[in-house]
Amino acid sequence: MNNFDWTQLINPEFYITFTIGGFQVGLFIVLFIVFAETGLFAGFFLPGDSLLFLAGIYNRDLIENVLFIESDFLNLLILSSLVALSGVLGNMVGYWFGAKSGYYLYNREDTFLFKKKYLLQSKEFFEKHGGKAIIYARFLPIVRTFAPIVAGIGSMDKKKFMFYNILSSILWSFILIFSGHYLYGMFLGFGIDLKHYIEHIIIIIILISTVPVLIKLIKKKPEEKI
């Protein structure tokens, strides 16, 4: 930790390979980050998509000190299931928080960790797509943090919310983790180690996940001028 750099906090690899006393605690950090990003409005700045993709690449490192089985598929299944569970619990907390604190959030002043514009953008996104917004939101930075809160504020039916909550969490975790693992293996077969291109991977994933949001904002500006 002597060479700690604050910029590491936005680098998913830092969390995955983090050790305490020689014991790798990356798995627990990953699970907490997923929970925080989907359940606590202060978690919107945390690396979500890129973290899960890299978790697939570093699957063995994350699992072997906790619960390792001699099967890549079973290890991926365990890791993805744990992440999905964290995502479900996170969204449940976000929904509860929104249901209990909706009025307070809409009237709260902006702070470093809270921007009301993110809440309003998520509300608009949610109103446009309905229940499916919970699924779409999983793959969109910032929106995935505020979507369950908005669902709670809007008193979305709990059973409907839980259905989309569970489905979206499973899709998000399994798609990204399995993609990271098997793409890593595929490229390794061509002599390319994706672990040497982590920075590029993070940039690509950020671009892929934010482009839809940017396009939406660009299209919206001309409409606002009319």
Rank of each mutant, 00 (worst) to 15 (best):
F161T: 13
G94H: 05
G43I: 12
I78N: 03
S179I: 01
P141R: 03
P141C: 07
K220F: 15
I78G: 02
W172K: 01
T38I: 03
E127H: 03
L89I: 05
N75D: 00
K100T: 08
D49C: 14
F112P: 04
A55N: 00
G152H: 13
F146K: 05
K221R: 06
F32K: 08
G94P: 04
D72V: 00
E13Y: 04
I170R: 15
F190G: 02
G189E: 08
D5H: 13
I69F: 03
I226G: 14
I142R: 10
D5K: 09
I33A: 07
Y15H: 13
F73T: 08
G191D: 06
V25F: 06
V25W: 15
G21V: 05
E223H: 09
N107Y: 14
M186V: 06
I226F: 06
T145H: 04
I204H: 05
S122G: 08
Y184G: 03
L140K: 03
I206L: 12
K220A: 13
K115A: 02
I192W: 00
L85C: 01
Y103P: 12
F32A: 07
S168D: 10
N65I: 02
L74M: 10
Y184T: 02
I177W: 00
P47M: 09
L9F: 07
T111F: 01
N65V: 06
E224C: 06
A137E: 01
K216C: 12
F161H: 07
E64H: 09
A42I: 10
N59E: 14
I198H: 02
R144F: 01
F161G: 05
G56R: 11
E224Q: 11
D157M: 07
D49R: 14
G21L: 10
L46Y: 01
L183F: 14
G87I: 00
R144Y: 12
K116M: 02
S209A: 14
Y118D: 09
K115M: 01
I10Y: 07
G48R: 10
D61Q: 15
S50D: 09
E13R: 07
E64C: 12
I206Q: 04
R108E: 08
P148D: 13
I16Y: 04
G189I: 04
F4V: 12
L120G: 00
Y136T: 04
S80Y: 05
V25Y: 14
V143R: 07
Y104E: 14
H196W: 01
L113M: 04
V213S: 09
K195W: 15
L54V: 03
G98N: 06
N2T: 12
